[in-house]
């Protein structure tokens, strides 16, 4: 049984040739590539959520639109806000890093 990582590694290992760069900075171009890959994974995750929503709608007898329109306030809203704050803190940690840039 080939794992997903083995499959990806097998594919990546066969690529040949030099990789031309478009942006002025190689680092920026590589970060762009990572960001675009994450964007694609977000679409994949959204599709997964959509499948679950449709299944829940089917099981619960409510419409998908109804399920998507559920809003929480009070405790649940505060819990979600805290989770979003934590997510942003993880993602933007570099902006809070107290360390000065090391010299070349």
């Amino acid at each position: 049984m080939t794992t997903q990582v083995e499959a990806l590694s097998a594919l990546v290992a066969t690529a040949r040739g030099a990789r031309p760069q478009s942006l002025a900075s190689r680092e920026a171009e590589e970060v762009l590539n990572i960001t675009l890959a994450v964007l694609v994974e977000l679409a994949v995750a959204n599709d997964r959520i959509d499948r679950v929503e449709r299944l829940v709608a089917e099981v619960s007898g409510r419409s998908v639109e109804d399920l998507r329109d559920i809003r929480y306030d009070g405790e649940v809203a505060l819990e979600r806000q805290a989770a979003t704050d934590a997510l942003l803190t993880r993602a933007l940690r570099i902006m809070l890093d107290p360390r000065a840039q090391a010299g070349g």
Partner: peptide
């Protein structure tokens, strides 16, 4: 920016189909 994104998107074509093929 377009060129870098277009190149990345072209590479992602092969990742998106290569994974199920090798798997």
């Amino acid at each position: 920016l377009w060129s870098a994104t277009n190149r990345a998107a072209q590479e992602m074509i092969w990742v998106s189909v290569g994974e199920p093929i090798y798997r």
